[in-house]
Amino acid sequence: MTVKMEASEGGMPHNTLMIYGIIVALVGTYLTYLNVVTGIAVFSFFGGIGAIAALWWGSDTIKHLCSYGLGTGVPSAGMIAFGAGAIAMIAGTKFGIFSPIVTLILAAIIGAVIGYIANNIINMNIPVMIMSLVELAIVGAMTMLGFASMCTGTFMFNGLVIGGMTLSMEPAAAAAGGAQTFMVTVLPEFAGSLIGGAALAVIFFLGAIALQHPFNACLGPNESQDRTLMLAIEVGFLSMFVVAVMSYAFLDMMSATVGIIISLIGWIYTYKQYIALSKRDAYDWLDSKPIREVGGDQ
């Protein structure tokens, strides 16, 4: 650790950040339940906001964990977070209205077991290892749950696996009086859903890239917390934009468009903020112009 590194250790304390992250992620995911209460799906975008809060907190956790020199690179932390988080998230959605809380608890347990394995069986002996992997598993699970609930408008298992209903008409046997009668049954259709269509795998990697990128991009002697976290929010909005595009397949036109507009506004704002912070931290800033077309014979 150099002196410059210590200078960047100020900012918001990690525990405060963690509490904000958990609360906003939980509340954001729960606000998508307004879809069920009101009957319209425009509240789905709150899931994305919750996911961004989780990513924002997770970037700071990765910074704490990776400053110990794991040797494996920053992206591996994002991958293990989402690998553990995916298992917790899918199992957690079975619990109806309690899904977000159960997901959080399950993720914490899985993270603790993996953290214990990494620290004590594989002998990493890093003081923050267990706590960091608990946090990262929760971040992975809450991000996936937030994006999934934004994409489909619900955080419950049935909503995530049933893509639509098809009517099946079969001629009823031995119809009385020779009249043509049919037996109509409603069959759930699974292939067009978020999990059944494996669209969850896209969310998996969208979240994993958004989690691993901010600290990987900003690390170094001049790293500062507000810039890293602003980049986390920016890539979070960028992932949210893709999720909003995916939600056209599952939600009505208006709800998906609301998601697109909010994620675009958020992304443009945070991108400008991030560039401003980068200019603040940079020694000098040369604005290279786009390559101009040279006219004539050249």
Binding site: T72, S76, I80, F82, G83, A86, I87, I114, I122, F204
Partner: peptide, 18 residues
């Protein structure tokens, strides 16, 4: 499939830590 990817990444990163 999604679970298998999750398992794979967890195990691969644990081995990477080793």
């Amino acid at each position: 499939g999604i679970f298998a990817i999750g398992f794979f990444l967890v195990n691969a990163v644990l081995a990477a830590y080793n």
